[in-house]
Amino acid sequence: MLQCSGVTVRFGGLVPLDGVDLHVPDRGLFLVVGPNGAGKTTLLNVISRLVTPSAGSVRFAGRDLLALEPSALLYAGIARSFQKAELFVGLSALDNVLVGLDHRRVPERAARMRALGMLEALGLGGVAHVTAGTLPHGYQKLVDLARALVSEPKLLLLDEPLAGVTAAEIPTLLRAIRDAARDRAVLMIEHHLELVLELAERVTVLDFGRTIAEGPPETIRRDPAVIRSYLGGKAVEHAW
């Protein structure tokens, strides 16, 4: 469904992405991993139209994504979460999630019910009316996820959803991600491989802006190039 071919991004002398290909089918969890600076977030930003690549193409459900405005993506069926949550800090958690429904013009009352249901499913029912900016960071990440999920996208982009989330919230979060991946494509960047690798259907490993490995988790785990570059030569089991 999502097809990136030869995506290259240049900022001055830097090349954060250098000819990356990526194919994401209709359903399932797809993981993009790699060391810091490998180009993961840049890739996500290209797909969500925050960064325009200097070369390559990005197609989604037969459409050229690069021809769309960032604000057209949700209408095309693509929603995303952010590494630093990027909530609307002055709005309540509930209103943040409501924004995720606003593009469909759901009647206010029905929208409130659905947004509240989404928050409750993520264990956030108790903070629905709290101003988002005052929530602890882990809660903010969950609200960010809820805001993206409630729009029922065909493709969900998650930028390190586990970063900054406390241990107590992780099972809920993982369950939500797994459920979401059941009937849609989820493209996720994550460092906590020990927690998410088993959930993933396929994994793409980036390093210095290039794809160095691609395949199902079992293969990736044993790939010598991955071990060398991403894991710094340490024993795989130990590091993961």
Binding site: P70, S71, R147
Partner: peptide
């Protein structure tokens, strides 16, 4: 409010 608080997230929310 969305535009006020985060233009990037606002655009991502359509």
């Amino acid at each position: 409010a969305a535009v006020r608080d985060s233009e990037i997230a606002a655009a991502a929310m359509g």
